[in-house]
Amino acid sequence: RLIESLSQMLSMGFSDEGGWLTRLLQTKNYDIGAALDTIQ
């Protein structure tokens, strides 16, 4: 599930440099909407 969510976020133009996006998705239970809300 992480790989699916991460690949979708990467395709939106986000980077996972340093693993920050992986950690964010894990804390949000791989919910892309919740991750995007946090980023904004």
Rank of each mutant, 00 (worst) to 15 (best):
S15G: 08
L6I: 07
M12I: 06
L24Q: 01
I3T: 11
A35T: 12
Q26H: 12
A35S: 07
E4Q: 12
R1S: 13
L6P: 00
D16H: 04
Q8L: 14
N29E: 10
L6V: 06
T22S: 11
R23K: 13
Q8Y: 10
L2W: 07
R23N: 12
A35Q: 03
D37V: 13
Q40N: 14
S15T: 15
R23F: 09
A35E: 04
D31S: 05
L6S: 00
Q8T: 12
L21G: 00
I32T: 06
K28H: 15
G19V: 00
I3S: 14
M12F: 08
S7N: 15
L10P: 02
L25I: 05
D37T: 11
T27S: 15
K28P: 07
T22Y: 01
D16Y: 00
E17P: 06
G33F: 12
R23E: 12
T38P: 02
I3R: 14
D16M: 01
L24G: 00
A35R: 00
W20M: 04
R23A: 13
I39L: 13
L21M: 05
L24P: 01
F14P: 02
D37W: 04
M12Y: 07
Q26F: 05
E4H: 11
M12H: 08
N29D: 13
S7Y: 11
S15Q: 11
A35N: 01
R23I: 11
G33L: 15
I39M: 07
Q40Y: 14
L2D: 07
S7L: 15
I32V: 14
W20R: 02
I39K: 04
E17W: 10
G13C: 13
M12W: 09
L6Y: 02
R1Q: 10
I39P: 03
Y30K: 05
L36I: 10
T38A: 15
A35P: 04
R1L: 13
L25A: 00
E4G: 09
Q8W: 05
D31R: 00
N29F: 10
E4F: 03
L21V: 05
D37I: 14
M12P: 04
L24Y: 01
I3P: 09
Q40W: 10
G13F: 08
L2R: 05
L21F: 05
Y30S: 07
D31Y: 04
S5E: 05
D16K: 01
Q40R: 15
L6M: 07
F14W: 10
I32G: 03
L36K: 02
S7W: 09
S11Y: 02
F14T: 02
Q8R: 12
Q8K: 15
R23H: 11
A34P: 02
D31V: 07
